[in-house]
Nucleic acid binder design. Sequence first.
DNA 1: ATCTATTTTAAACGTAAGTTTGAATCTGTC
DNA 2: GACAGATTCAAACTTACGTTTAAAATAGAT
Lengths: 214, 214
Amino acid sequence: MDDKPSSKKRILWAAGEIFSDTGYRQTTIRQISRHAGVNVASINYYFQSKDNLYLETLRYWKDIAFQKYPPEFGASQSDPPEIRLEGFIRSFVYRILDSGIESRFGKLMAREFTDPTGALDAIIEETARPMFNLITSIIGRIINKDPLSDSVLYCTSSIVGQCLYFLYARPMYRKMIGEQKTKLLPMDDIADHICRFSLAALSVIRKEEQGEQA
Amino acid sequence: MDDKPSSKKRILWAAGEIFSDTGYRQTTIRQISRHAGVNVASINYYFQSKDNLYLETLRYWKDIAFQKYPPEFGASQSDPPEIRLEGFIRSFVYRILDSGIESRFGKLMAREFTDPTGALDAIIEETARPMFNLITSIIGRIINKDPLSDSVLYCTSSIVGQCLYFLYARPMYRKMIGEQKTKLLPMDDIADHICRFSLAALSVIRKEEQGEQA
DNA sequence: ATCTATTTTAAACGTAAGTTTGAATCTGTC
DNA sequence: GACAGATTCAAACTTACGTTTAAAATAGAT
């Protein structure tokens, strides 16, 4: 009795996999329906439109991602900001690079970054805004500057940019390094590196900026 | 006598603008033909297919980009690696963020990164490979490691990731900061920041790794 | 068992895309 | 000025997509 999941759920799973692999525009609802083992019309029956299916898919997989990888990876407000930054980076990287289903939301959001669908300002706002506020406040603490200052803004971009890049670069990386090294960089090592690289930079910048102010 | 440029050239200009703005898949040849003031069929007449037009467009705009921004922004092999890295970063950033036509190739390549068309392994190879070899050799010098070592690879990703991100993040950035600050971050400041951030990190990493080896 | 509401299905619809066609127009040459 | 080749054009062709339709199948309740 392996109670097959409901059609609606099967669609959400197929959509999660295919949307996150190939992006909103390149996936067709026929692909999804085939993969889910349902009729094409079922998708419109349950989700009205492709747009709406995409939105519901994002909502569905967001919870799964954040359940496994909370915003600061276990750290909390009472920890020193360097530890919190490390938690942020680790969760962010894992949420994108995890080889399991937990990275589906991260991959969807990463695509939304470089190629926005626009159809879902709502969930972007719900998700990206709090992350942005969190990371700027942590970095503000570390370099001792206002979270909205340009310095903090630049450093935020440097750090988030690194995290996303390790996902974006994968196809190119495969081409550059060649097939012999088939194994991908392990995500723990990637997170370690980004933490090390960024904390080194931040500590130098903190000193420099304090020198300026004195 | 304002000698209107040839149809072929007008198509390449329209294609450069529209492809780099909206990407290969989202632009239609009807858009391009309208913008170039030629008939739709002309595009197939001169370029056989959309695929091929895209390829020719990349080739055409590549020269323009590299003419203005050479690989090391004026620096050369005889300069210290820190200066060369700064040159690399500056050219890379300007080639992507320039507000004029010189950024068209950079924008096309940036898209190719996150959403490869695959139709042009050739030009990727021609362009990305030499850049990759250049940047890894420079960073190898700076942290005193083999250009193919993991350490160098990680640092390369960190730096290239930062550069690309300032382009990718623009739509999101606009949403986060809001419309009031309509002015984009100036690309000189961005390049300055990435250099400072990265050189700070690299110098710390160099020390650490040398400590390990001792 | 029958009736009703829900779900599933095959087929068709409408639109937009890349491409092709074949005639019309333009350009240069003898 | 007539011819040949190159270029331009409106229109049609083909394919793929998201969506809709209306009938068939299923499930649940009385």
